[in-house]
């Protein structure tokens, strides 16, 4: 599991990769939150392109980042979800709060 960041203007993009489960989500969460705090973007993009596995811990991760971002008045986008990730994400109802984008 690796987390890479790209900041441009007031948008922060987070490139997630590998497996997202309860074990890995702790480090991912901490990495994203410290970067959010440092940059205070108005748009946060979570890019799932290279995520090979995700369970409901990933939903908790996104939901938590949505709440944190809300404090900064920051909008959240979830982009490039593989089918397996989207299957779980759709179950959560998060789509009504967060914009899902395929490409």
């Amino acid at each position: 599991m690796q987390v890479l960041f790209k900041a441009e203007k007031d948008m922060l993009t987070v490139f997630l990769s590998g497996d997202i489960d309860h074990h890995t989500s702790k480090n991912i969460r901490e990495a994203i939150d410290s970067e959010l705090q440092r940059i205070m973007p108005s748009v946060l993009k979570l890019d799932f392109r290279d995520v090979h596995f995700m369970d409901s811990s990933g939903v908790g991760l996104v939901m938590g980042r949505y709440k944190t971002a809300l404090v900064y008045g920051c909008e959240v986008y979830v982009v490039h979800m593989p089918d397996t990730v989207e299957k779980i994400m759709r179950m959560s109802g998060l789509g009504s709060l967060i914009t899902f984008e395929r490409d």
Partner: peptide, 13 residues
């Protein structure tokens, strides 16, 4: 805060 309460629903689905 970190849990979504979806685990059993996912297992079922």
């Amino acid at each position: 805060d970190d849990r979504s309460g979806l685990g059993f629903s996912v297992m079922e689905c």
